[in-house]
């Protein structure tokens, strides 16, 4: 710990000092440090997540003021603004993109409660609700779902968006969702920002489009193939194309020059036949043509 950091912590009570020191150790031990949102994660689940991440990343929860102090001491000022609400520190030697992918993949669905803000559009899916006819159909209609009674049960006729992202969940909606067992939230460690080897990454930066990369790989491979073939550079994968190209060229020349080659004869004969037919097609007079050339 630097002398400056030493000085900053000297006015803290002993337990806080120790905690900041622990955080400082954490920040020092790993190449990448980030802030994760912990909102809505039951402590049991948080324990499980921390265990699942063992060996990949370390998550530490502490008072925000102490986190801020540790971050400032360690030179992670860029992360301080993200320490807001219920958050923790995450530290890893992994690639931050990989960390983001792993955290996203570990998120699990959870019910949403009255008064919470919808993180994404809430949709009641089309289909049989399995609920017997009764007042529930009215509740569904009340929150904006296209529902009616059919075949002895309550059916939702089409996917119905009942609340858009950012909207507040009403008591009625929370009830309906609860009744249907719909869990519209994704709960998990929510990576807010990471600094990896001095570079700050936002979630938008970290959310890579794997398909685009896949398409880039295909493009790169196609370009290399094109170049190799067009530059006539033989490799095991381009030689068949080069051979095909060379034979195609020879054939094209052979047909254009009507070269008397055994291999070319069938094509030359069909070329002659096609020319005959093309010419015949220009002739209107039936007298001039044999039966087989008349339409």
């Amino acid at each position: 710990m630097s002398a400056e950091a030493e000085r900053k912590t000297e006015n803290l009570p002993q337990w806080k000092k120790e905690e900041v020191e622990e955080l400082a150790d954490l920040l020092e031990d790993y190449e990448s440090v980030g802030i994760v949102g912990l909102t809505g994660i039951p402590s049991k689940q948080l324990q499980d997540m921390r265990r699942d991440l063992y060996g990949t990343a370390e998550v530490r929860v502490s008072r925000n003021t102490l986190q801020v102090r540790a971050l400032e001491d360690a030179g992670y000022e860029d992360l301080v603004e993200h320490v807001e609400g219920h958050v923790g520190l995450v530290a890893t030697n992994d690639n931050p993109f990989t960390l983001y992918k792993e955290l996203e993949a570990s998120k699990t669905p959870a019910p949403i409660n009255e008064g919470e803000v919808a993180p994404n559009d809430i949709v009641i899916p089309e289909g049989d609700t399995g609920v017997d006819p009764g007042p529930f159909v009215g509740e569904l209609q009340g929150i904006g779902a296209n529902a009616r009674i059919e075949d002895g049960s309550i059916q939702v006729m089409e996917d119905s968006t009942v609340l858009e992202a950012g909207g507040e969940v009403s008591a009625d909606l929370a009830n309906v969702l609860n009744e249907l067992g719909i869990e519209p939230k994704e709960v998990g460690l929510d990576l807010r920002a990471v600094v990896a080897e001095g570079v700050l990454f936002d979630p938008e930066d970290l959310d890579i489009d794997v398909e685009a990369y896949e398409s880039d790989v295909a493009t790169a491979a196609a370009r290399a193939r094109n170049l190799a073939v067009n530059a006539e550079y033989p490799t095991a994968s381009t030689v068949p194309t080069l051979v095909a190209k060379a034979t195609g060229e020879a054939k094209s020349l052979g047909l254009q020059a009507a070269i008397e080659d055994e291999e070319l004869m069938p094509d030359l004969v069909s070329k002659a036949d096609a020319q005959l037919r093309a010419l015949a097609a220009q002739i209107d007079d039936e007298e001039a043509l044999p039966d087989e050339l008349q339409d």
């Binding site: 095909a244 034979t247 060229e249």
Partner: peptide, 19 residues
């Protein structure tokens, strides 16, 4: 009387056609 380069090029228009 054949322009070989031209004839070859015509094949090149469909190089893979063959392949």
């Amino acid at each position: 009387d054949v322009d070989i380069d031209e004839a070859v090029e015509e094949a090149a228009a469909a190089p893979a056609a063959a392949a």
